[in-house]
């Protein structure tokens, strides 16, 4: 699979326990590698740990034990500020419920992270407009989230994720709250972005959308399994 490439992101022996009095092991000894330019789907039933794995990989959460390496750095040992900088400059996020700031326009929702990175206003605006245009919603730049349909909100959310030209985009159930047409459109956008060289890690419980990924990692009870057999730590490759 790697084709001799170095992994962009790699996780070793990840364990994540949740709860304080009633401790649940949400992830149990997970190894995973994400290669540049690949479209990776994390699948599994509810509670299997796929979203937990995505949050750990994207530096939104810390593992109970294990390491995650990105670009030669162990992100699990980074302090909060460095992890925030990583999310700001290297990662992009698309969430199930769009997660747009309701007080801001589509354009502002995209430019806020860019401006926070230190990009000048005109550069941030240009990048945001380019992202909106590439997703076919340039005319919606002045609208606030409540003035957009679910599908349009998700496109704005994708535009926000890609406008910063991240190394990797993490998508958590991006089609989970969309009608079938919008969901299909979203997946097509992802396919196009990956074709253009973007790396995408997507959590989904939709087998049809997972099948469109180049690689699928199936989780169950916090462990990684093959889709067909049930061998631990085996990944389906296409």
């Amino acid at each position: 699979m790697s084709g001799g490439k170095e992994p962009l992101l790699s996780a070793r022996a990840l364990v994540r326990e949740l709860g304080e009095q009633m401790v649940t092991r949400a992830l149990d000894d997970v190894d995973l590698e994400v290669y540049p330019g690949e479209f990776l789907a994390l699948t599994g039933p509810s509670g299997s740990g796929k979203s937990t794995l995505l949050y750990l990989l994207s530096a939104l959460d810390r593992p109970t034990s294990g390491d995650i390496w990105f670009g030669g750095s162990n992100i699990t040992s980074m302090d909060d500020d460095r992890r925030a900088a990583l999310r700001r400059e290297r990662f992009g996020f698309v969430f199930q419920f769009h997660f747009l700031l309701p007080e801001f326009t589509s354009l502002e929702n995209i430019t806020i992270p860019l401006r926070h990175r230190g990009l000048p206003q005109n550069v941030a605006d240009r990048r945001a407009k380019d992202a909106l245009e590439s997703l076919g919603i340039a005319e919606l730049h002045g609208r606030r989230p409540h003035q957009l349909s679910g599908g349009q909100q998700q496109r704005v959310s994708i535009a926000r994720a890609i406008a910063g030209k991240p190394n990797i985009v993490f998508a958590d159930e991006p089609t989970g709250n969309l009608d079938s047409r919008s969901a299909e459109a979203t997946i097509r956008i992802f396919e196009q972005l990956v074709a253009d060289g973007m790396t995408l890690v997507m959590v989904t419980h939709e087998p049809a959308f997972a099948a469109r990924a180049r690689r699928e990692v199936h989780l169950s009870d916090g462990r990684v399994y093959d889709n067909e057999a049930t061998r631990p730590n085996v990944i389906i490759m296409r």
Binding site: L60, D80, D81, A84, A85, L86, R87, R88, E89, F93, F95, F99, L100, L101, P102, E103, I112, P113, H116, R117, R160
Partner: peptide, 16 residues
Amino acid sequence: RREIAILRSVGFTKRD
């Protein structure tokens, strides 16, 4: 809380 989580997820620090 949701908006704060959005800001944190796109790279705003606790200090921000």
